[in-house]
Design a protein around this nucleic acid. Structure first.
Lengths: 142, 142
DNA sequence: TGCGATCCAATCGTGTGCGATTTAATCAAG
DNA sequence: CTTGATTAAATCGCACACGATTGGATCGCA
């Protein structure tokens, strides 16, 4: 028997992800950011100067997605993209002053989202860990 | 303090959703379907002849996403799109024989995905319900 | 009955995601 | 050295998502 839409874990993840993006979008828009651009910045604030490949591993995206996205961020003056002199195949992505400065402006966001979730911290952390574990289970080998 | 990427529930949902789509994609590709098209079919197999608006409420998508998607499915011969004669503003989406027939072919999919999740049914259902509850919490009013 | 407000779908432009391929740089084995 | 294999990014084409707007159809109320 074919299950209903709402019974499926895939649709739960699909629709929850979109709902989350819809909460973030208007807030990020004030900073001139899209949702994936914000995720890239989160990763760079954590560790600046990552290569495209390293960002891809962190965000679980390929260069065919990241390259145009990073070019738009470079055009906005948030990052610079420079070939690694030791290995010219790699491109390092480095925050500009403007990209660094956004961290302060984005800082209140996570608390705002946390409130919106309306869950005790432990429950939210448990949910996050369960979702992450499922994700890692679904990923090929690694 | 800015949290790390992996600490954020938003990234857990984002990456888990993508991981799920990456599991489905090659299987659906054999049926000539994309992931959102499969979700539309799930909804139509549950209730045929829904309007674009009703499908949008079920899938939580707007007409600007659904209309082109449904046109592609119509071009593939999976559904028909007809204006409701009682209210010409509405468009009813109805399964063709081919669209109905796909249900049998897609039937093994959900079990296949379930195995991939490698979780006991109760745990998977609990996770699904928690994700769904969070999604509904994030949705505006309703 | 008329006419403005509302509702539904469609259209348009932009930004992802991703399969498939290409280009350039590095590595490895002889 | 050199040449074939591997690796890293970029490119291309297509299918979503979605904000903003448009065009018809229906509704509500004087």
């Amino acid at each position: 028997m074919t299950p209903t839409l709402s019974q499926m874990i895939c649709f739960a993840l699909y629709s929850a992800n979109h709902a989350m993006q819809r909460v973030y979008a208007p807030l990020l828009s004030e900073l001139g950011l899209t949702y994936p651009q914000y995720l890239v910045l989160l990763s760079l604030w954590q560790e600046d100067g990552q290569t495209v490949g390293a960002l891809g591993r962190a965000l679980q995206l390929e260069s065919n997605t990241l390259t145009p996205l990073l070019k738009r961020m470079e055009a906005q003056g948030l990052v610079t993209r420079t070939r690694d002199s030791a290995d010219e195949r790699q491109v390092r992505v480095t925050l500009t002053a403007a990209g660094l400065a956004l961290q302060a402006q984005a800082e209140p966001l996570s608390a705002c989202i946390f409130d919106r979730c309306a869950l005790p911290p432990e429950q939210l952390a448990a949910l996050r860990d369960a979702v992450t574990a499922l994700r890692d289970q679904l990923r090929p080998d690694v």
